[in-house]
Amino acid sequence: MRLNEVTYSDAVPVDGYGEGFFRIGGEVHQGAVLTCAKGTSAWGGYGDAEALLSLAEDVDVLFIGTGAEVAHIPADLRRSLEGAGIGVETMNSPAACRTYNVLLSEGRRIALAALPV
């Protein structure tokens, strides 16, 4: 088996998550988070569309982690994001974190907005 060390250029990966928190780049963040190459910050959830729309020039795809279970995001939020040219992929937060890390290691222009499990 061949193992390769993964390196991240701009953004930092999600190191872990648990009940109510995410560990990103070695730092623990309580509650919902938004992370991308610009950094990591608290996210206000589905009602905080402005934080997500501010990423329009910097990301191609936004992964939205919906918590422990897969859920639909509000239709108006999806329309706003897609109207701004941001691709939207929703999945449960654990899957969103894993997918974000894989694509981040490939140097993709992505962001993650995730609700805690």
Rank of each mutant, 00 (worst) to 15 (best):
A84T: 05
V12Y: 00
G26H: 07
A114W: 11
A95F: 00
Y8H: 12
L55D: 03
L104G: 11
G67C: 11
A68D: 09
F22L: 12
P74C: 09
A49G: 07
E19P: 04
G44D: 13
F21P: 07
G44I: 02
L115Y: 02
A84Y: 09
H72W: 01
I86Q: 09
S80F: 01
K38Y: 01
G45M: 10
F22M: 05
W43A: 11
V70P: 01
D10M: 09
T7K: 13
A114I: 08
R79C: 01
D60H: 04
Q30Y: 03
I64A: 00
R23C: 12
A96L: 08
L104R: 12
R2C: 00
N4G: 03
G16E: 07
T40L: 03
T66H: 05
A49R: 13
G39K: 01
A114P: 04
G87S: 11
A42K: 12
S80D: 13
F22E: 12
V70M: 10
V102I: 15
L81V: 06
E50D: 15
G47C: 01
L52G: 03
L103C: 04
V88N: 10
L103R: 14
C97T: 12
T40N: 02
V70K: 10
A56N: 05
W43C: 03
V70T: 06
A95K: 01
Y8Q: 02
T66Q: 08
A11M: 02
F22I: 07
L103K: 11
I86L: 02
A51R: 10
L34E: 04
L62W: 10
D60C: 00
G31K: 12
D15R: 07
D76E: 14
T35L: 07
F21W: 15
G87Q: 14
S9R: 13
L103N: 13
I73G: 05
V117H: 09
R98F: 04
K38E: 15
E69Y: 12
E82K: 10
A111P: 06
E27L: 02
A84Q: 03
W43Q: 06
C36T: 11
S9Q: 15
Y17P: 02
V6P: 00
D15N: 15
P74W: 04
R2H: 14
E27A: 10
G16V: 04
A114R: 12
T7C: 03
L103F: 15
Y46I: 05
V88K: 08
C97F: 08
P94Q: 09
L103M: 15
G39L: 07
L104Q: 12
M91G: 05
A11E: 07
V6S: 10
S54Q: 03
D15M: 01
G39S: 05
V61D: 06
G39Y: 11
P74T: 06
G65C: 01
V59Y: 00
A113K: 09
A113N: 10
G26Q: 06
E50G: 05
Y46L: 05
L115P: 09
R109S: 15
I73Q: 01
N101W: 06
A111F: 06
A71D: 02
A42L: 12
G107R: 12
H72E: 08
R2A: 13
D58I: 00
R108S: 07
P116F: 13
R108F: 01
M1A: 14
L62R: 10
A49W: 08
E50C: 00
G65W: 08
S93F: 08
A42Y: 03
D58V: 06
M1F: 06
Y17N: 00
A84R: 09
V28K: 14
